[in-house]
C-alpha cells in the first residue's frame, strides 16, 4: 500500500507522541483507580487506544495486514470487557455460580422485558 499524506514526516510522529501521552494518562487512572470498574474502564480505553496505535503503525510502516490486527484487537477488547462484566455479576449460591452466565442472562432478560413493557405504559400514561 502506498501512503500519501501531507507532511507525513511530522504528522505521524506527533500523532504517536499524542497517543503515548494518552496511554500514560490512562495508565495513571488504571493504577490509581479507586474501584474495580474504574480499572475496567481504563483497560477499555487502553484497548481503544491500542486500535488507534495499530492503525498508526500500519500507516507508518505501510503494512496493510496490521489493519486486520486492529479488527481483532477491537473484537478482543469487547470480549474482555464483557468478561469483566461477568466477573462483577453478583453470584450468591453455588448453583448460580455454576450457571453464572445463565443466571446473569436471566436477570438481564427480566429487566429487558420490564423495559419493553414499560415503554408503551409510559406512553399511555403521558
Amino acid at each position: 500500500m502506498t501512503v500519501d499524506m501531507v507532511g507525513a514526516a511530522w504528522v505521524l510522529p506527533l500523532a504517536f507522541i499524542l497517543q503515548g501521552v494518552s496511554a500514560a494518562l490512562i495508565m495513571v487512572r488504571l493504577l490509581r483507580g479507586p474501584t474495580a470498574p474504574d480499572r475496567v474502564v481504563a483497560i477499555d480505553a487502553l484497548t481503544l487506544l491500542g486500535v488507534a496505535v495499530v492503525a498508526l503503525v500500519a500507516l507508518a510502516t505501510a503494512q496493510a495486514v496490521l489493519l486486520d490486527a486492529a479488527v481483532v484487537l477491537a473484537l478482543v477488547s469487547f470480549l474482555g470487557t464483557t468478561a469483566f462484566m461477568l466477573m462483577f455479576a453478583p453470584r450468591k449460591t453455588a448453583a448460580e455460580r455454576r450457571a453464572g452466565e445463565l443466571a446473569t442472562g436471566e436477570q438481564r432478560g427480566d429487566e429487558l422485558y420490564g423495559a419493553a413493557d414499560g415503554g408503551p405504559d409510559g406512553g399511555r400514561g403521558a
Partner: peptide, 15 residues
C-alpha cells in the same frame, strides 16, 4: 490522523 490523536488525548484526560 491528527484529529483522531487529539480526540484520543482528550478522552485520556477525561478518563
Amino acid at each position: 490522523v491528527l484529529g483522531g490523536a487529539a480526540f484520543c488525548l482528550i478522552g485520556a484526560i477525561g478518563v
